[in-house]
């Protein structure tokens, strides 16, 4: 019998990475000031090696200090959120699960806002306070939502989880709005937290995102087999010998960690974690060994493009990035909900 490889093949990695890279270059060159491709390469190449950039190139500082970090942050955030969405959809065997539909992102936003409003910081790492609070709140939110869902409906049906997620999001958003009302000068405007924005991103943000993605995202990818078992059924996972409680807890920690970091940097960007794994699943199938790596690239590509649209559509006005992702995501959400309900009622 031919051994069939289950994971992502090398050429698939190259293909996905290639597309992601092309979109990356496109997003760096297009914007309020468009820079030719040749110049982009020269700017990046020369600054990496410390060679002075030729005078003929118009605006290297826009590329280097504004657009490049922003596009990198968009790619990393998109990859992270999509990975989280894929992991949660597997863990809860629910194709509509995602940080934004479950209310985890809102929870993280609340945590971050509280940290900023009340000046909660970590000694020596000033911005870490916000991030840790966002992670903790994301984790607590996940626990609260799942506990409520279990109490109401032991089978954790799609409808119950989504309903509780929506209610929880509204509840948390109201507290968030209250905090912002009392500390308007410190906390960023509410649209940042509900719609997200990557406009102020810098290279430090990118580094933190990369670090989080390697640690937490790595943890998720290494549990692809367990996620497969969960996606087939939690009871079945228990029967074949998966340490169900431990894996569930680990995945929830990884997901909260990633969402917390993403939200504290870019606000809560909705629906990307829902949309990407869903589209990717149509190409790779539901096996997480393929789905998760493909979601990383797919999410990066999707969010870079969404950010591009947010930047250039109404130039010089800028849209919050969540406007773009939620617009696409909400339509797709209805479609998934509709088709999956039709399937169960058939």
């Amino acid at each position: 019998m031919i051994k069939k490889q289950e994971g992502f093949r090398i050429y698939e990695y190259i293909l996905f990475a290639g597309i992601t890279f092309l979109v990356f270059i496109l997003c760096v060159s297009v914007g309020s000031v468009s820079v030719p491709l040749k110049d982009i390469f020269t700017i990046i190449w020369n600054s990496v090696w410390g060679i002075p950039i030729p005078e003929t190139i118009a605006s290297p500082s826009i590329i280097l200090s504004v657009r490049l970090p922003r596009v990198i942050c968009a790619a990393l955030t998109g990859a992270s959120l999509s990975l989280c969405g894929g992991a949660m959809q597997g863990l809860l065997r629910n194709p509509l699960a995602d940080g934004s539909t479950l209310g985890v992102s809102s929870g993280a936003a609340l945590g971050a806002a509280i940290a900023i409003a009340f000046g909660i910081t970590m000694p020596s790492l000033p911005f870490a306070g916000t991030m840790v609070m966002a992670i903790v709140f994301a984790f607590v939110s996940l626990i609260v939502i799942l506990t409520l869902a279990y109490k109401m409906d032991f089978s954790l049906s799609t409808n119950t989880i989504i309903l509780i997620g929506v209610i929880y999001s509204m509840f948390v958003s109201s507290i968030l709005a209250l905090i912002i009302t009392f500390a308007p000068d410190k906390v960023k405007h509410i649209t940042f937290w509900t719609m997200g924005s990557l406009s102020g991103s810098n290279f430090d943000n990118a580094l933190v995102l990369l670090f989080a993605l390697v640690i937490f995202g790595g943890g998720i990818v290494l549990h692809a087999r367990e996620l497969n078992a969960f996606a087939i059924g939690e009871e079945n996972a228990l029967h074949i010998g998966v340490n169900v409680k431990r894996v569930k807890l680990l995945i929830m920690i990884f997901v909260s960690g990633l969402i917390g970091v993403c939200v504290s940097i870019g606000g809560s960007i909705g629906f990307i974690g829902l949309v990407t794994p869903h589209i990717v699943r149509m190409i790779t199938g539901p096996n997480h060994k393929r789905l998760l790596p493909a979601s990383l690239f797919g999410g990066a590509t999707f969010l870079m493009l969404a950010d591009l649209v947010a930047r250039v559509l109404l130039n010089p006005l800028e849209l919050p990035i969540g406007v773009v992702t939620s617009f696409v995501g909400a339509i797709l959400f209805v479609y998934i909900f509709y088709t999956s309900r039709r399937k169960t009622h058939a």
């Binding site: 065997r93 497969n228 996606a231 087939i232 059924g233 079945n236 199938g285 539901p286």
Partner: peptide, 8 residues
Amino acid sequence: NYVNYPFT
């Protein structure tokens, strides 16, 4: 056993 995703 009720499966939600198209695993082979």
